[in-house]
Amino acid sequence: MSREQTFTEAICEATHQLMEEDDSVFVMGLGVDDPKAILGSTKGLLDAFGPDRIFDTPLSEDAMTGVAIGAALAGRRPIHVHIRMDFLMLAMNQLINVAAKNHYMYGGQQYVPIVIRAMIGKSWGQGAQHSQALHSFFAHVPGIKVVMPTTPYDAKGCLVEAVSDDNPVVFIEHRLLHYQKGPVPQKLYRLDQGKARVVVPGSDVTLIGLSYMAIECFRAQKYLESKGVKAEVIDPVWLVPFDLDTIIKSVEKTGHLCVVDNGWTTCGFGAEIISQVIEKLQYKLHIKVHRMGFASVTCPTTTPLEDLFYPNARTIASSVYRLLKPEQSSWIPEEREDLKSVEFKGPF
């Protein structure tokens, strides 16, 4: 039987192996060496590698991002960890004006191999400033790679690939995914960037879920089965570089595309995917599309409103059903115990 690990264990093991393999890799960020070790994702690294290779930082996201970039220019490979993605707002100047631009702006004389690990919060009242998903911001700017793996297997392989890459990579983790368990090989392995994963094959509709929404899409696909709808669930994994081919192949087969973003829909990555697909297929195929994502409001903390804020397996299934069968009366499945969302409790 293959070995199972949680998402955070997979991240931790990948980091450990990367640091063993390459002396230039180091980890920095607020709390990376504290007893909680970023939900365990940096556990044991201090003992193994010492305080020069993993260290706490001041609460200075702007400067510390600049420091990571500077160290990368000097030949180091920093992994800069943020326990919430919202804090990256304070680092935007360095990420957008420096990390993304230096290689191009300096005519190739410099490159910036940094990895930014950033976590998106959800549920238990994470609220306005602990729940934001900024992947579309980063994907908008040329020069930054963006990856948001869903499974522990992808988390390890993509982190290894990100740290080995010579460019800035924003590595996005969803807080709820940290609990997911799955098979993870012990050896160091890397997964190709820009490669989407077909989670479940299907023939009626292409259902794309970003990050945690891939899980909700997987559950939605189960609900849809009961209505005889075969959804092909795809997890893009990488947004930059983006695997359009896998999605085109799927939509050519299904003719229907529903993108469930783990973020707001307006100017979001879901819109980007749909535009790219339509541009490519519009003269070949009449396709039907639908976009889902966060409600276009600030994330509220109170549970009844928070529940409405996010798409979930049932609302996704319902929307997909309407997309496929607009002539039928609307349908929303009864919640199944085995397909319930796993919530979490706790300050982080």
Binding site: G66, I69, G70, A72, L73, A74, R76
Partner: peptide, 13 residues
């Protein structure tokens, strides 16, 4: 903007 980059470079050194 280049101030923290210089600091980071010094860290790397």
């Amino acid at each position: 903007t280049t101030i923290p980059n210089a600091v980071g470079y010094a860290l790397g050194i």
